[in-house]
Every structure is written in C-alpha cells, then in structure tokens.
Deep mutational scan, measured.
Amino acid sequence: MAAGGDHGSPDSYRSPLASRYASPEMCFVFSDRYKFRTWRQLWLWLAEAEQTLGLPITDEQIQEMKSNLENIDFKMAAEEEKRLRHDVMAHVHTFGHCCPKAAGIIHLGATSCYVGDNTDLIILRNALDLLLPKLARVISRLADFAKERASLPTLGFTHFQPAQLTTVGKRCCLWIQDLCMDLQNLKRVRDDLRFRGVKGTTGTQASFLQLFEGDDHKVEQLDKMVTEKAGFKRAFIITGQTYTRKVDIEVLSVLASLGASVHKICTDIRLLANLKEMEEPFEKQQIGSSAMPYKRNPMRSERCCSLARHLMTLVMDPLQTASVQWFERTLDDSANRRICLAEAFLTADTILNTLQNISEGLVVYPKVIERRIRQELPFMATENIIMAMVKAGGSRQDCHEKIRVLSQQAASVVKQEGGDNDLIERIQVDAYFSPIHSQLDHLLDPSSFTGRASQQVQRFLEEEVYPLLKPYESVMKVKAELCL
C-alpha cells in the first residue's frame, strides 16, 4: 500500500493539533497551500530580480507567473513527485505547466533550498508574528487579574506546605514575570531571523556568478533584492546548502521555554482548584465526569500541561538535527523538520489560546482563602504575639514557653481530632496574655502579614508589564474561544 493518505478522510490519521486544537490561522501558515504558494512567490521574486539585473526574462513571463501564483494543481504535483521522487522539481514542473512561456526560467540558477529553506524562514517569521500578540493578550488578562487582587491576602506555599502570606495578585505576578520573559525572547528570536537568500547549491553562489558572467556586484544585488522582497532586513552571508540548523534550535528553545512557563502556571491553577481557592472557567453544560456528576475538573489547565510537556520535548529534535548536518548538509534534517517545526508552533498556539481562555474567566473564592488563612495564621502570628507581650512588660522566655504549650495543644486538636485551630481562643482565655487581649485582632490582621506584596504588584505592572504590552494595544480586544 502506498504511503500517505487522504487526510480529510475519517479513515486516515490526522494530527489532533490540526484537527482538534490549533487555530485556523496557525494551521494555514503550515498548510501545503501556504507552503507551495510561497515557493511560487519566491520563484517570481527571483525572476523579477534577475530581470532587473539584466537576464533575458520578459515582462510577459513575469506576468504569467504572477497570474498563476494561486493556480496550484495539487493532484498534478503529487503525481509528479511520485514520478520524480523530488518535491521541488515536482512543483517546478507543475508551475511550468500553467506558465508555459515562463517554464524555462522558473528556478533559474537556484537549488531546492532556495524555495525550501527560504519558505521555512518566512513561515517561522509569520508563525512567530501570530504567537506574539496571543502571548501579549494572556499577559494582559493576567495583569488585569493581578491588579484587581493585588491586596487580597492568601496563604503562600513553599514545598506545598503553608508559608508566609502573600497576595493573590502577587502570586499571579510570578506567572506574568515568566511570560514577559517569554514574550521578550519570542520577539528577540523573531527579529534575529535572517533570510537564507540566493546562495546556490553549497552556499557559494557559483551558479549565479556564472549567470551574471562573473559580476560579483550583481550577485550581491540579486541576494539583497530577493531578501528585501521577502520582507527581511538581512540575509546570511555564510550558508551551506541550507541555512544553519542552529536557527531551528533557537526558535524551538524559546517555544519550549514558553511551554515550561505555561505548565507551571496551569499546575498552580490545578492545585488551587483542589484547594477550592480558584477555578478555571466551567461552562453551564460542561460535564466533569461521566460517573461523578459533582466533579469540576480543571480540564483546560490539564490540557495545557499535557501539550506543554510535548512542546518542551520537541527542542531535542533540532538539537540532534543540527549535530548531524555533515559538511554542507545531509538530508537527516528533512523529514524531522517537516514534523517538529509545525508541531512546535501548533502546540504553542494551542496552549496560548487555551491559557487566554482560562485567564479571561478565572474565578476566585475569597471566603475559602480566608478560612485557610484562619487555619494557619495563628501559628504564624506567634512571633508577633511574643513581641507584643514583651512590649507590655512580659518575659520573652516565659511567653515563648506559654505559646509553645498552647500551640501544641491547638495542633493536637487540628491533627488528632480534625478540629479547627483554636490557638487564639486559648490565648484569649489565658490570664497571662490579658495585657494584649485587646491587640489580638490587630495582630491577626492578614494584611499585616503580606509585606509589600501589593506595592510590588503595582510597581511591576507599571514599570515592566504595561510598557512591554504597549506595541500590542491594537490587538488586545480579541477574545479566545474554545470549541473543545
């Protein structure tokens, strides 16, 4: 049975990233139509530049190519590739079939990587351009969430054990800070992308030097003109047959890092959902379990974690691919890159769409948070109580021993009897502590235990987050809708 299948058929496997999760716009960027249309555009740009620099290419040939950029006979191309065992030459023939007058000058002087690699770089750039505003929107939604809850005390956790208090907004800023680093890295790697350009079979530009009869300047002009037509500021000066596969490492490393950030955020949300302090959106008709109707599973956060793990592992592909590119190139890269580049971007696209949807509907339960604080705060307040007693004339050592005994009794009630923490009640009825009984409410005010959390939130948002989001103001209103 021949390899390949009808990918629109229910009898043929289709990647869930495309069929179930990723956005239509990201799927289109990695589609065959987008790819092969870009090949034709690159052939047109090459012909236009070659004509401008004096090669015998007519206006009629150029116009014929322009008129057929979208006229792609995919069936013919597939048949040609089956016959020739070469995808680029299959599309040269297919393009030439609908451009008979231009057929002889299509791909003039070029090698397969002229269309293959340059198209990949265009796709990487455009895919990054799709991700950047999506990530900015996630940051914006979380920034709104953090600002609104900047002063809401909550129990902090280290080692997932109760620690000092923080605020809900401050905790959210930990998430935002990681995503801001990801946004900066995505922008950097996007701006650092260079075009492969017009380089020939081993990167020496020998074929173009021959076409222009040894004119170095025209060869350099050709490279520059096509690079500018493709919208790049610069091209690699040095290439082998391909652009260095280190570029793929750079791009997928940034995406993998984004995956790590999203995994951490969504894990926190899942843990908070278990504590009943916070939940992701839950639709009115949504079913959490087929057997347990009360369940409210954090399905979206779980999906993000599941896909983020996949995204983090994909960076190993370009690392290994770059390491086995012998001399000017081997074909070890080809099949692998067809999979890992598309999957990385479709996965990143999915987790950003999902995280935006989550961040637009996060639900906080202040009463649950308050109750958990009441359970733990008495123990945390013991040092403040000791200091207040010393100020009232008591002995630190005597007070410490009193607190120690009462704390152990209260802990026994919590752990052995399943009761509430009654340390404060014990202190309130103990005559030894009568000098500070009137101060206990103040000493137990949760806001006095959150330090500068709310001020940190305000400063972080104003100095770091809002300036970073400013270039994306025009796209901030787009909502994230999930079908599944």
Rank of each mutant, 00 (worst) to 15 (best):
C399I: 10
Q375Y: 07
L272K: 05
R245I: 02
A150G: 10
K187A: 13
L209K: 08
I238L: 04
A260C: 06
L42W: 02
G231A: 10
L174G: 15
T111F: 00
I123R: 03
A291D: 01
D420K: 06
P293H: 09
V413Y: 13
P56Q: 11
A206E: 01
D120I: 09
H217N: 15
A78N: 12
D332C: 02
T201E: 03
V219L: 12
I265N: 05
R245T: 00
H7D: 09
C173L: 03
R338A: 01
F208A: 00
M299D: 02
L211H: 06
A260I: 00
H310I: 11
P446T: 04
I106E: 00
L128P: 03
L444M: 12
L179T: 08
L406W: 07
T154C: 08
D216K: 08
F208V: 04
E220V: 09
A273Y: 02
L193S: 06
N297G: 05
G259T: 05
T382N: 06
L222M: 08
R190H: 11
R171W: 00
V115W: 00
S447V: 11
K229Q: 03
D268W: 00
Y472F: 12
R303A: 03
A2M: 15
Y432H: 10
H86V: 02
R303S: 02
H107I: 00
P10E: 15
V168G: 02
E220Y: 13
S261W: 03
N68Y: 07
F160A: 06
I237C: 12
H263Q: 07
V465R: 01
V168W: 04
L131R: 00
C180R: 02
G361C: 15
E50I: 01
V457P: 03
D332K: 00
F145E: 10
S412M: 14
D398V: 12
I287N: 03
K284Y: 13
I436M: 07
T330I: 04
C172E: 01
G231S: 12
V189H: 06
S434G: 12
R37S: 12
N118H: 07
S334E: 02
S448D: 14
F30L: 14
K101C: 14
D191V: 10
T94F: 07
A90T: 14
Y13P: 14
R270T: 01
V363L: 14
F95E: 00
P435Q: 10
D144L: 15
K276W: 07
A206R: 02
A47M: 02
R372E: 02
D120W: 07
K218R: 12
V262Y: 02
V88N: 04
P435R: 09
A335T: 10
R188L: 04
R171T: 00
F236Y: 13
S140A: 13
I123T: 13
M225V: 12
S257V: 06
G197F: 00
A150M: 08
Q416K: 10
P56F: 07
R270W: 03
K134H: 13
Q51C: 06
E25L: 08
G5Q: 06
N336D: 07
T58H: 13
